[in-house]
Design a protein around this nucleic acid. Structure first.
Lengths: 114, 114
DNA sequence: CCTTATACCTAAAAACATTATGCATAAGAT
DNA sequence: ATCTTATGCATAATGTTTTTAGGTATAAGG
């Protein structure tokens, strides 16, 4: 039994969080659930990765946060995209696309004959 | 002036090396040149990442190596894909595809209205 | 002889992820 | 009443990989 979801690739967590938050503010636990759901459990974010990432991004002023009450009636911290966060989302999306295309160029070239 | 090539995404260097070597044995310096060329300089592998990666992969028996003479008449170490390496190439290619598709599912969902 | 490209390597530091914990409460089940 | 599960935040220790920065050496062309 291998694990069903892969290790996070460097840099992709920030992009995922930025994108998820572009639809509206959410709290951490909900962000991680959305990532799991929207990727059909392909990508699962450990809490030990999620919360430090949110702090990092807030420090960099990509996000702002405020405490509030969740739908489940719990005290939670909501994160909101800042304008710098929106800029980052755009930039990192472009970079991700470029990276994928670059990988494709290598992977699509014929390798060793069977 | 930003740098023109991106940071490597975790895990993708191994896949790139495996793929490049699937066309035939090459030495380290040549591998890094091919990655640069085939990605049109989008991905540049630092030597400090390249050589440790080759050693790791050899330790894991994905590659074998032997010293030889390059086209430039230099003593170089040639790396060759092992059968386990071929297996890894297949597996990691599939994983990469799945990861890209998972990212796409998130990134393609409409975000915040302009 | 000087410079450039080629070619290998490693150590220190930074960055990020995993694993393992810990704490706390709402809600539903027994 | 109490147990369990899901929710929700957080950090510390560890591990892996990458960047940065340095070192060594030779072939070839000017």
């Amino acid at each position: 039994m291998g694990k069903q979801s892969m290790d996070l690739m460097r840099g992709t967590l920030d992009l995922l969080i930025l994108k998820i938050l572009s639809a509206g503010s959410l709290h951490g636990y909900e962000i991680s659930k959305r990532i799991r759901e929207q990727t059909e459990a392909e990508i699962f974010v450990e809490e030990g990765a999620l919360y430090p990432a949110l702090r990092r991004m807030e420090e960099r002023n990509w996000l702002t946060s405020e405490w509030g009450i969740s739908k489940n009636n719990r005290e939670v911290k909501f994160y909101l995209l800042s304008s710098e966060g929106k800029r980052q989302l755009k930039e990192q999306s472009v970079q991700w696309d470029r990276y994928v295309r670059a990988m494709d160029r290598v992977l699509k070239i014929a390798g060793s004959p069977a």
